[in-house]
Design a protein around this nucleic acid. Structure first.
Lengths: 354, 354
DNA sequence: TTGAAAGCGCTAACAA
DNA sequence: TTGTTAGCGCTTTCAA
């Protein structure tokens, strides 16, 4: 009286001995509760549409059988997996840690699983990782992608998407307020007596890099601070070290680096050449990564509400997945603020006019 | 002549406008190639079992239609998703970065997608994250779990599993050679004239913590170095700072910290109290995280082949998934080596005998 | 070597 | 409010 379930392959060639005991299906629950399978399904999906006592009976049966809906089986007819992808350019980049946390929490809160796809700073690998997860996810958060706008737009047509740290027309975007961050930096430096800033650029494929440099150009013009740009360099400590070698001959008064890693590299390399920060030169970074407060001197940097960004990105994505109209207009912008630590100081008095 | 496909819900209430064009199914390919669907399936799964020219025709049809097998639909009859889970105790912990990379690469190489589940240093959250992904994965790598051995064993019965940084009988395990790492540390310190080592302990739920302290006890006894232990402390910079306050009254000659973060915290806090490392006290960490080479003084630490560990863990897991007998016997142990940097130096001559 | 057909566990019309 | 019935796209027996 229990073998009427039409299983054929349930006990096929049991090659791997690690198989768990077959878990209960919706049919088992239905039989035990004395209702049709569809009623069980309904009881879970739309509790309102089923008689209260029936629902209770079903719940009891499900519990006693340890029933857990098979998310794969559910995904097939509905086309929804309750999985979202979060792609980053590099897991090893500490910048993402907090963003990921916020994103993960927001996803979990909504009953979604988040899969992390790491591009390892390579456009090809990023594509591959994305390609691999696309068929199994309901939506995608693209954080700091190295792909082109065009490529992103194509992907955005396949699945709901939100991009982070980048602004793409027609795709819901979330960025930090680079403009304001840069302004705070320049004003701060001005207050310390600096009259020029050298920007150490990051990867050319980085949207943030362009935004930061443009902002500096603009703010510099407005506030009468002269600006210079060197680069591009890799967005790493090593990249910063390399940049430092180009920074030494006419030592600038102040340096703004693409990100904290680069700033740290600059400081390290300069230190090895006997050039002391901030006495000889001021250095400021972006992002406020973990290590920034630990180095000597501690890094002055532009911070953003990282965790919040993860949360917002995911919430927006889920809204779109649930049928919301992807917000038009420009990117959503989150505020930044300058964290004053020890790597920027008063401009030294210089005999040589610059 | 194309609408004979029995779709009913293909164009239901189109609520969300983001839907991609329906992608081709195996039936579309079958029709175009003039064969049965089962033949198409076979052509992809067991190319040997299908006529070469037929196979070619199918491949052509698939290509021209841009056919991609739906992994979800495939998972239903086979019970295999080609997804594995990688659970860590904290994404923000830089220690995992390289491990994740290796793991991800090994997974991708085998055509598997890896989902990262973050426990955020909480046993409850770790369980939840795991619970959420278990039904959709073929196997699990548990890196530095905060769960109990018993709980892990239970989960290991549900799905193939490999644990990292921990040794659990009956579950395939992979650990670093803490014994050797500690011995290298003690021998190095002995060479510098130290005669005692204080261990700053990490979380009690950490297997590595126990292993390191036991190793120190053993090696200390053998090499006639006296040992002391304080803690537990959180495995963070903050935890290290806190530990430092307990370290000051009788300042030890040498400190071995649970991990690099703790070591960094100790150094920072000590510095703020005017105690200079390594002049006044030597400090050594574990793991060799990114930040360790950046702080001043650069941290002397015990490093392991992180990326390799990720690769090995995933390869072993995949082997088990594919039916290999989970290797019995103890854990697989990967070598460690001491990286000598600046945070450990000669023991200072002390008037006061200790 | 190929095709027909049943079924994986669930959802969603449609009727009752 | 509930049951019946077709599928979702793929795999896998079983026959041909």
């Amino acid at each position: 009286m229990k073998s009427d379930s039409p299983r054929t392959r349930a006990d096929g060639p049991g090659d791997d001995g690690t198989d768990a005991p077959k878990s209960a299906t919706i049919y088992d629950v239905a039989r035990k509760a004395g209702v049709a399978a569809s009623t069980v399904s309904r009881a879970f999906a739309r509790p309102g549409r089923v008689n209260a006592v029936t629902a209770e009976r079903i719940r009891g049966a499900a519990e006693s059988l340890g029933y857990r809906a098979n998310p794969l089986a559910r995904a097939l007819p509905t086309g929804r997996t309750s999985i979202i992808a979060f792609t980053i350019s590099d897991v090893a980049n500490p910048f993402y840690a907090e963003i990921i946390r916020g994103a993960q929490a927001a996803a979990a809160e909504a009953g979604f699983t988040m899969v992390l796809a790491d591009g390892q700073e390579s456009e090809v690998l990023e594509r591959e990782a994305l390609e691999r997860v696309i068929p199994i996810v309901d939506g995608i958060v693209l954080a700091t992608s190295r792909m082109s706008d065009a490529a992103i737009k194509v992907t955005a047509r396949q699945k709901p998407m939100v991009v982070l740290n980048r602004s793409i027309p027609e795709v819901p975007s979330l960025t930090t307020d680079n403009q304001s961050g840069v302004r705070q930096v320049v004003e701060y430096l001005l207050g310390l007596g600096h009259r020029s800033v050298t920007y150490v650029a990051g990867p050319e494929a980085s949207w943030a890099d362009g935004a930061r440099w443009r902002a500096l150009l603009e703010v510099g013009a407005k506030l009468k601070v002269s600006t210079r740009r060197i680069g591009p360099f890799a967005p790493t400590v090593h990249g910063g070290r390399e940049a430092a070698t180009h920074l030494m001959s006419p030592l600038p008064s102040a340096v703004l680096a693409y990100n904290d890693q680069v700033a740290i590299g600059v400081i390290n390399q300069l230190a090895e050449a006997g050039i002391v920060v901030p006495t000889a030169v001021s250095v400021i970074g972006f992002d406020d990564i973990f290590a920034s407060s630990l180095i000597t001197p501690a890094l002055t940097t532009v911070a953003a509400p990282l965790q919040q960004m993860g949360v917002i990105a995911v919430r927006n994505l889920l809204a779109v997945i649930n049928g919301a109209q992807p917000r038009a207009g420009g990117a959503l912008v989150v505020p930044t603020h300058l964290i004053e630590r020890g790597s920027a100081g008063p401009a030294r008095h210089r005999k040589d006019k610059e």
